Amino acid sequence: MLERSTDASLATAVRVVRTAALMVLGGLVLAACTAVPVSARKDGPREPLAVKSRQEAMDWMTQVLGHVRQTAGGQRSTAMPTYGYFTCRGADVAAPADPYVLSYAGRLDVPDDQRVEVIRKVRDALGGEGLKISDYQESSAGTPSAVPTASFRADDDRDHHTVLLESAEPGKGVNIAVSTPCLKPPAGAASPTPTTTG
């Protein structure tokens, strides 16, 4: 009986930690969701949507994240990432047969004194690859934060995916969010279970 009680307590604790992580990273997921181009969101899709299964979108997302991680110097996140399939109009969870945006929010483990340098490096690399860089901000150590911070947004006009990076709280590295454009699942496609890839 004691083992069951301990298992139940552990399961409850895991749910609480997971919920807290979702709340902390949820802001990035919502920001990534709203980064879908207006032409694909306002009043629904206006142009034909690319057909991609959720598994294909997840595989693509894994490649994008691997590229950003490699560009950042191979930094790996120890924070629990958050994935979600959302409607193309906002933050509601998309039903398996509905058009969707796949969004990811997580962290890269980067020392505070290297965060701005890493964010600049990723910004420059993505800009050099043809992504449109916007909303770049940087603060020095003498401003409201105790350590230098930076953030930017990169939009790919070719396939409409978005990458966001920003300094997290001191000691917590760099927040990263990525979102796909609005995609249409093929008829009868099954949904994959998101895996933790950091």
Rank of each mutant, 00 (worst) to 15 (best):
A91K: 08
Y83Q: 12
A57W: 00
E117S: 15
V93K: 11
G73I: 06
E47W: 08
S77C: 13
E117C: 10
D113V: 14
G90W: 04
S77R: 06
W60H: 11
T82G: 14
S53Y: 01
G90H: 05
K52P: 00
G74K: 03
Y104D: 01
D59V: 13
P111V: 13
G73H: 09
S53H: 01
T71R: 03
R115G: 14
D113P: 13
W60K: 11
Y104C: 02
M80Y: 12
M58W: 09
R76Y: 08
D112Q: 13
V64I: 15
G106W: 02
L102C: 10
P99W: 02
D98T: 09
V68H: 01
M80G: 13
D109N: 14
E47G: 09
E56W: 04
G90S: 06
A79G: 11
A95F: 06
A91Y: 05
A105G: 15
D98R: 07
A91I: 06
S77I: 05
W60Q: 12
M61I: 02
K121L: 08
V64P: 00
R54V: 01
T78M: 08
Q114V: 09
L65S: 02
R89Y: 07
T78K: 10
M80C: 10
Q63K: 14
S53P: 02
M61G: 05
A72H: 04
H67G: 10
Y100C: 03
C88I: 06
Y85T: 04
L108V: 07
A94Q: 04
H67N: 11
S77N: 13
R115S: 15
A91M: 06
M58T: 05
Q75C: 11
T87F: 00
R115A: 15
L49G: 01
Q75Y: 11
G74W: 08
D109M: 12
Q63F: 09
P96V: 13
D113W: 11
G84D: 09
G90N: 04
V68N: 01
S103T: 13
C88M: 05
R115C: 15
G66Y: 07
G73P: 07
A72K: 03
D92W: 06
L108P: 03
R69A: 15
R107L: 13
D113T: 15
C88G: 14
G106F: 03
S77W: 03
T82K: 14
V110F: 09
R54W: 06
V110N: 10
A79F: 13
R76M: 11
A91F: 06
F86A: 05
Y85S: 04
P96C: 10
P81Y: 01
S103P: 07
A105V: 07
S77K: 02
F86Q: 04
P81D: 15
M58P: 00
R46L: 07
Q70I: 06
A91V: 08
V116N: 12
R76V: 13
V101P: 00
E117F: 13
L65R: 01
P111G: 09
L65N: 01
L49I: 02
A50Y: 05
D113M: 12
R54T: 03
A72L: 08
K121Y: 03
Y100S: 03
V122M: 03
T62W: 07
W60M: 10
R76T: 12
Q75P: 07
F86G: 01
S103I: 00
V118D: 06
A105T: 07
Q75S: 12
L108H: 05
V110Q: 09
V116W: 11
K52V: 04
F86P: 00
V122D: 01
